[in-house]
Design a binder for these strands. Sequence first.
DNA 1: TGTAATTATTGCGAGATGCGCATATATTGC
DNA 2: GCAATATATGCGCATCTCGCAATAATTACA
Lengths: 313, 313
Amino acid sequence: MVSRERLTKGGKQMKIDFDGIQAFVVIAELGGFNKAAEQLHITQTALTRRVQKLESYLGLKLLDRTTRYVELTSVGREFLPQARAIVAEMTAAVGRLKDMSKYARGNFTLACVPTMAAQILPTLMREYAKDHPNNRIRLLDATSYEVRDAVLNSQAELGIGILGEQRPDLTEVPLFDDPLMFFCRDSNPLSEMKSVTWSDMSDADLIVVSNLTATRAFMDYQLAKRGISLSGAYEVQHHATAISLVAAGVGCAILPASTFQEGDRPGVRRIPLVSPVVKRKVILITRKNSTLSPAAEAFHDLVKKTYPTGARA
Amino acid sequence: MVSRERLTKGGKQMKIDFDGIQAFVVIAELGGFNKAAEQLHITQTALTRRVQKLESYLGLKLLDRTTRYVELTSVGREFLPQARAIVAEMTAAVGRLKDMSKYARGNFTLACVPTMAAQILPTLMREYAKDHPNNRIRLLDATSYEVRDAVLNSQAELGIGILGEQRPDLTEVPLFDDPLMFFCRDSNPLSEMKSVTWSDMSDADLIVVSNLTATRAFMDYQLAKRGISLSGAYEVQHHATAISLVAAGVGCAILPASTFQEGDRPGVRRIPLVSPVVKRKVILITRKNSTLSPAAEAFHDLVKKTYPTGARA
DNA sequence: TGTAATTATTGCGAGATGCGCATATATTGC
DNA sequence: GCAATATATGCGCATCTCGCAATAATTACA
């Protein structure tokens, strides 16, 4: 805890006087009241008074001044480096903050599920960098649960995740729906279909993501409601792995549409999966009662602008 | 040169606001406005306004606050360490200065001729240390000329030297007269005399200090006025050497009285030297138009109190 | 030596600032 | 829903701070 004293002079309470110290530094640097006053955009009169006030506050003379020139006292010489450091630090810190405010400059942390980090973030970040070339985004890629936790406990200012159970202290805005689709090689008999139903598929050569992921949990829940279950399927941890297995001809996969852009992999087809259409909602997460930094806010706005609510992937 | 900006908000010029930053730090540390207000000895109302002013000045929120509790924003978290450092540095620096003023605390440089450094300084410094145990005196021992130079160009705040030609920018207060005396062993024929005249001495076994010192130059000048000259004398650089030679029986010496306290060396006598009495004046030197640090001023006062003007050694 | 130029200080009035008191408003806990 | 707690706001007053004009002190130059 910083020591705090209430310093008095002549009975009156006087506050620590940054202006006075700044005045002292500028006068010492420029060697005169007039030049210093000009640089500080005040009259020389006011400057005189600032110095007088500071000196009376400290009970010390910092400047020996005749009408002809100004010179540091012994105490002033000793204090100057400290004063200079204080002024420099202060103006620098305040300058940084004003930059943050004025130009939405600064860094922030974004928590994001890996799928989205791979699919939508690159474009968003490139777009963001156009307007904010110096802003660094610390990326926290984690499961949908962890994303929400990170936002809740302020490890991240923003989160991109999958809609799940509502948490009261989070604000979640839907970005787009991300339907599950069927992925197969073009040699697969189903590859030419406009859409595939769940019953069209055989469990045997099916690849799904592990039941530890939100995607899988969501899928199981949606299917269970309709009396469908997948039992014989392969399980993998990552969507990218699933795609690779499909490409290698191991089997077919059920993955969110956004996992894969048409043409990413030669020979792999992405086909709508219906009866029912199962889709997860991608959401942008912020914390309630928590003010975003301008940098994060700018990103937040960009995301919302890029994905007007309800659009599809 | 420190960058200086005049920051505006809504057309009004706003000064950098140390109070606001301090308020922010204290609130962040204590976790609430009320506790912080108490520590700062202002009302919670005033504190609220300080924070509001700071935030509006920066264009940023630093604290997310409901009526129930206070929490740092992302920007606030980032700023807190800097703010803490600024506040700590500022209060520490100001505290040091107030200590300097209130308790005459601090260090200073004293230039002094070696004779006086050896003879009167020890007592003075011991006395000074009683009231100012933590104050360090940087001692610059040098010739009388160098002492004046040091004071003139502010290498030293105070000087103790020998009266010479007046310099316009120095203030010199006489401390005591320091007459030249005759030093001999008690075996010397002159040793029992109440006083010795210049003509009583024989040049042959005389020891004087080198003509590079102020003492010697002064002595020569005073004697020349009266048509006396010493030609056959030994010359040494230091007063202490001369005393040792006397003690060893090499000869007799002419030295300032203050060189030697009665009883310093067994077998050595100090006898007044008259016709004429030649005495140099020991002076305390300060620079005109130059404010002393409280620490130096205290020493200055002590010296003047110890040697009321005109006293003898 | 005197006069002009330069530089800091002081008197004064006007406007801005900052504070405290009383009150309002919002959230939590029972 | 009510009491308790904590921050925000309306308002008036005291003080601060500024700028202008005039003063004082020192230097430079004629």
